[in-house]
Each structure stands twice: as structure tokens, then as C-alpha cells.
């Protein structure tokens, strides 16, 4: 048994850099904005605060397990995982790097400026095809392969693609 090593918050964050969204594994939980806060107590115990993307996100348990596993590898086992609901997660929290990564794997990133409530009332306009970048696209279904995506089709290259929904 190795003795537990005291880590600071930055070291904990570094350990969590490879914890990924099990449904979109190119994104880390930090890219997604799911990782909200990291705190280390005087006694060395670690608190990790996460927030769910969607109420019904089935990945939260896996993410919590993965966080524990990543920290356990550094012999950090005094870990508390806290779920924080407020402020509610929004696609605005996706980092610029995350948007680029989504495009690379053929998922259209959410349109910017989601504080504009009109997007919720009407169908989003101008979702560009991640393959040919054409703006001539149509919605196939409000729900795609996972809770956070909608299914679109490109009228230019005729390929279907996932769109990361604005929320």
C-alpha cells in the first residue's frame, strides 16, 4: 500500500484531463463544461464538482466512476463527487477546442449565442454541414444518436450528420 499523496487542485485537474464523455469520447469533461470545480481540503480529501448536460444524461454515473478511477491511479482515494445543478449547463460552455474537435469527427457544433431564446422557439437556422460546410441542410429528427444530438441531412453532399443541440 502506498501512502496517499497530497495533491493540489491543479494536480487533480491534470489527472482529470483524460476523463472523457463516454458518448462523445473525443471530448473531455473539461471540454464539455461538465467539470465545474475541484477543491482539496486540508486533510487531502478531494471534492470534484460536476454538472449534468441533460437531466436524463445516462453518462453521469460513468463519468463519476471514471473520475474516481483516474484519481485512484494517483493513489488519491478520498474523493467526493458532488453534482451541482445551478447554474444549469449550457452548450455555451463548450470550449473552442471542443467545437473544433466536434467538427473533425463530423458532428456540427451548436450554434453560438444560445442566450438568444428564439432558438428554442423555432428550428435553428444555419446549421452547416460538417463535411462540405454547406449551409443547405435540413432537420431529420429532433433527437439523434444520443440525448444531446439532433439528426440533420445535408442537401448539398446528401450526407446525414449529427448536430450537437443548442441548450
Amino acid at each position: 500500500m502506498s501512502t496517499p499523496v497530497a495533491l493540489d487542485a491543479d494536480a487533480v485537474r491534470a489527472l482529470l484531463e483524460d476523463v472523457r464523455d463516454p458518448e462523445i469520447p473525443i471530448l473531455t469533461i473539461d471540454d464539455l463544461g461538465v467539470l465545474r470545480d475541484v477543491a482539496v481540503d486540508d486533510d487531502g480529501s478531494v471534492t470534484v464538482v460536476i454538472t449534468p448536460t441533460y437531466s436524463g444524461c445516462p453518462a453521469m454515473q460513468t463519468i463519476a466512476d471514471d473520475i474516481r478511477a483516474a484519481l485512484a491511479e494517483a493513489h488519491c482515494t478520498q474523493v467526493r463527487i458532488e453534482t451541482r445543478l445551478a447554474p444549469a449547463w449550457t452548450t455555451d460552455w463548450l470550449s473552442a477546442a471542443a467545437r473544433e474537435k466536434l467538427l473533425e469527427v463530423g458532428i456540427a457544433p451548436p450554434l453560438e449565442a444560445t442566450s438568444d431564446k428564439r432558438v428554442l422557439g423555432g428550428h435553428p437556422r444555419g446549421v452547416a454541414c460538417p463535411r462540405c460546410r454547406s449551409g443547405d441542410t435540413e432537420l431529420v429528427s429532433e433527437f439523434g444518436s444520443t440525448a444531446c444530438k439532433a439528426l440533420y441531412r445535408c442537401r448539398s453532399c446528401l450526407e446525414p450528420f449529427d448536430y450537437f443541440k443548442c441548450l
Binding site: P52, Y54, S55, G56, C57, P58, F143, A147
Partner: peptide, 8 residues
């Protein structure tokens, strides 16, 4: 997906 949102 809608069912899942409700259960969440």
C-alpha cells in the same frame, strides 16, 4: 430520449 429526460 424524451422518456429519459423525464426519468432524469
Amino acid at each position: 430520449n424524451t422518456a429519459l429526460d423525464h426519468i432524469g
